[in-house]
Design a binder for these strands. Structure first.
Length: 475
RNA sequence: GGUCUCAUCGUCUAACGGUUAGGACACCAGGUUUUCAUCCUGGCAAUCGGAGUUCGAUUCUCCGUGAGAUCACCA
């Protein structure tokens, strides 16, 4: 049997990093086993439905590189892949339960059920709907919720690929709603029917579903459906707390990270590393490597806190892995305004220089703007520099003049420049920490820059001489 | 409150009963004859507590403690 996994989001908003990992692991497993990764949209909650959310979800997954084999936009033989379009299937499966006497109309109003719930709470005991099962339920005409009648109240035991052997007592079992009074199924019913219809072999989801497992298991049995393989994933915790990461606590959307210059492969690597590792000391994985090495039995059972610093570090690692051409493509929206009219060759030259220093793509402007526009002299940078602050005004001027003269006479390839710079050290008798820092600042007025000779070479003689003159003049 | 789950450096994690408890991020200190956010070297830092099983427990069992999840006509 080929492995078929799925990711089944509801279109209620953006995808945050926790959601993204719930998509990643089933994706990895399906790809590794040459199976199919299915995307299903669970849009049965009309109240929480958000108009553009589906497109946002699809676009986010596409950006991440988690492409689906079946689902919206691509179709497939087991569709439709939107739950609202699958009503006939839910009807058919519900009818099967009704025929077996395992589903009944819920005659109570929501207020009445709520009252039962209140009462149970008052009496300090768990609320169970099945304690209130109507003796002679009316015929279900669709205007009332349809409830599942749990056939056997017992303890359930099952295996979880991540969590191991699990079990839960009869308290976890209750008559739950299959179809709401609006005619749409609940998640509890729909996902089981859909997974069966779509021949999903592995149910991989967050561990918030574990407490409901006995209900699901009982329904599989009632429907005479084999149990799929289950894997419940630990939560990703918010950076500051111990709570499950959620939108309520301001979990950032995946697209925000994209806009901040995070690479999709870094995000995926990071997400995978929270809760999974291959047992070696490897930290940086490409998506292909993740596909090859992933396994459910090496997934952690405890939650992992979201540490952005680690994400940043991984992002830098992945930026360094990119070819220059690839990086050039990705960095397109991040260039400083002043680079807009620069030609491709010039931009690539600059990019090659800073590739090793980028932590995010969004760092590009700070690192490169002085290549494309005249930086404004900021003598604060010199007076606040520990070493440069010791220099007399006059010395600064002399050093800059000397540098200007030497560079004006120099060839401008990196090697010649290094020689010229070294020569300058001797003639001025200065320490490199002082001389080179000064030149660097006078030419870039930037907090950081690549190696001085490389920077000068890319800048070109005219620019370097002009900026040194400007620096001297502004003193 | 009921049910369920989890527990190793600050953080992410490794160690299928035997290791000086390993790696990475972050941090700190050096180095790479400029800065630095790259790179290299070094340092700091952990098995929640208590019983038990065992020659030997991070690892197995039990009890605590702590944390989380869940108890919807939401998923």
């Amino acid at each position: 049997m080929t492995t078929r996994t799925r990711f089944a989001p509801s279109p209620t908003g953006y995808i945050h990093v926790g959601n993204a990992r719930s998509a990643l692991f089933p994706y990895l497993l399906a790809k590794q086993q040459k199976g199919q990764f299915i995307l299903r949209i669970e849009d049965t909650d009309q109240a929480r439905f958000v108009e553009d959310a589906t497109d946002l979800i699809l676009d986010t997954l596409t950006w991440l590189g988690l492409t689906w084999d079946e689902g919206p936009r691509v179709g497939g033989s087991y569709g439709p892949y939107f739950q609202t379009e699958r009503k006939s299937s839910y009807q058919a499966w519900a009818q099967k339960l009704i025929d077996k006497g395992l589903a009944y109309a819920d005659p109570y109003t929501p207020e009445e059920v709520e009252a039962f719930r209140e009462q149970a709470k008052q009496e300090k005991r768990a609320f169970l709907y099945r304690d209130h099962r109507p003796e002679n339920p009316p015929v279900w005409d669709g205007s009332m919720p349809l409830r599942f009648k749990v056939p056997e109240i017992k303890r359930y035991e099952w295996h979880d690929e991540v969590m191991g052997d699990l079990s839960a007592g009869p308290e976890a079992l209750d008559d739950f709603i299959l179809i709401k009074s609006d005619g749409l199924p609940t998640y509890n019913f729909a996902h089981i029917v859909d997974d069966a219809d779509m021949q999903v072999t592995h149910v991989i989801r967050g561990l918030e579903y574990i407490p409901s497992m006995p209900k699901y298991l009982s329904l599989y049995d009632a429907l005479e459906l084999p149990w799929p393989i289950f894997a419940h994933l630990p939560h990703i915790l918010a950076a500051d707390g111990k709570k499950k990461l959620g939108k309520r606590d301001g979990a950032k959307s995946v697209t925000e990270y994209r806009d901040e210059g995070i690479l999709p492969e870094a995000m995926l690597n990071f997400l995978a590393s929270m809760g999974w590792n291959d047992g070696t000391e490897q930290e940086v994985f490409t998506l292909q490597e993740l596909v090859e090495k992933f396994s459910l039995d090496r997934v952690q059972r405890s939650g992992a806190r979201f540490d952005e610093q680690r994400l940043l570090w991984l992002n830098g690692q992945h930026i360094r892995l990119l070819s220059l051409d690839d990086l050039y493509q990705r960095v397109t929206p991040f260039w400083p305004e002043s680079a807009r009219n620069a030609d491709e060759a010039a931009k690539k030259q600059v990019l090659a220089l800073v590739q090793d220093r980028l932590k995010t793509l969004a760092d590009l402007p700070v690192l490169t703007s002085y290549f494309f526009e005249e930086p404004a002299p900021d003598w604060q940078m010199i007076t606040s520099n520990k070493q440069l602050a010791k220099l007399e005004n006059q010395e600064v001027a002399q050093l800059l003049e000397a540098a200007k003269a030497a560079l004006e006479a120099s060839a401008f390839d990196p090697e010649s420049l290094q020689e010229t710079l070294n020569g300058l050290l001797e003639t001025t008798g200065q320490k490199p920490g002082i001389l080179f820092s000064l030149i660097r600042l006078a030419v870039s007025w930037a907090p950081f820059s690549p190696a001085l000779n490389d920077t000068l070479a890319v800048l070109g003689k005219d620019t370097v001489v002009r900026r040194l003159s400007a620096a001297i003049a502004s003193r």
